[in-house]
Design a protein around this nucleic acid. Structure first.
Lengths: 180, 180
DNA sequence: ACATTCTTTCAGTGTTTTCTGAAACTTCAG
DNA sequence: CTGAAGTTTCAGAAAACACTGAAAGAATGT
């Protein structure tokens, strides 16, 4: 005899299916933006789980090895997207994610600025410095183009800094108004 | 006897060194953002070269195979970042890049919206739809969190659309003013 | 000191992504 | 129609990247 599932039983199944879909897609999205798939999936899992999870919980849920889970949890901690939680009386380490979407945005912005935008600015400045006094006509075009890029990237950088330093409560109403 | 290099000779050497550095770093930056290294390098090369280049020119310059050059040139064309130029009387196809930094930004924004943001919005909507009526408490948390994400992504999408539709001449002065 | 529990590391392996090069195809001039 | 010039495709090779699992290292309690 087949047991008739309870309502909460079917709910759980539907929920878990949607949840898995979300985790999988979030992982794929991460990939497209240069973020390791597993890292994005762990992040997704922690974002939508209302309680801290241990390394073993995550290994079991995503079907990944301890080493993989460990490395990516550290990486996420490095970004500041998750933090570890120690429960008193327990030796195991648990992890919980920052859940506020605005804060997540600010963290990612700050980190990408630090990791990629700043170094790019350095390279551009270096290229300009090394070529701006040269007489070669191709060099002149090169300098001009890298200058334009530098100017743009520096402006984008400033604007992002400003936004990421603002409160969501100030930016969102402003954005809504501006969008009309 | 070692030939003393002419001024323009040393200039060329310095320029080529800076140029190679730029191309290499632009490639690395592309990688970090989920863009194929070669595609980014070809883009860099075309951006800073004041004349259209043929597939063979690019193969020689970046030391890559015909297939690789071809594929990535098509991909860049697909993004709208470069266009092919046919010189009359010649059968070979040449390529030139969009050089206006603001236009490049708009193109990349539009394409990433289309390729990644819109599908992400689809996934989020689907997850919400499938879980919003469930009674399970974890499902409720899940729906709430995905709703928050959806709201944020949709707002970001609108703002980017608006910016990418604007003229640089309108946005830049506004940004400068706003930054003070 | 020792056992237990948990974390960290990393060499080896597996997977995914990208690249090569040669063959097939297209286009065009003669 | 034929051959030369150029383009496209794609199977297999190479490179980059990610993952596993087991061993070593910490931390804690007894």
């Amino acid at each position: 005899m087949i047991t008739k599932p309870t309502n909460t039983g079917t709910d759980k199944v539907a929920y878990l299916a949607a949840r898995d879909e979300f985790i999988a897609q979030w992982g794929a999205l991460g990939s497209a933006w240069g973020i390791n798939r597993t890292m994005a999936q762990i992040h997704a899992l922690l974002m939508i789980t209302p309680r801290p999870l241990s390394t073993d919980d995550i290994m079991a849920d995503l079907q990944i090895s301890r080493g993989n889970a460990h490395t990516n949890l550290r990486e996420l901690t490095g970004w500041g997207l998750i933090r570890s939680v120690i429960r008193k009386g327990e030796r195991k380490e648990y992890f919980e994610a920052e859940k506020d979407v605005w804060k997540i945005f600010c963290i990612v912005t700050r980190e990408r600025k630090r990791r990629e935008i700043r170094p790019a600015i350095g390279v551009l400045k270096d290229c300009i410095e090394r070529t701006e006094t040269l007489r070669d006509p191709d060099a002149a075009v090169f300098t001009k183009q890298t200058r334009a890029l530098l100017e743009f990237v520096e402006m984008a950088d400033s604007i992002l800094s400003k936004i990421a330093r603002s409160e969501q409560s100030k930016v969102v109403p402003w954005a809504l108004k501006w969008l009309k």
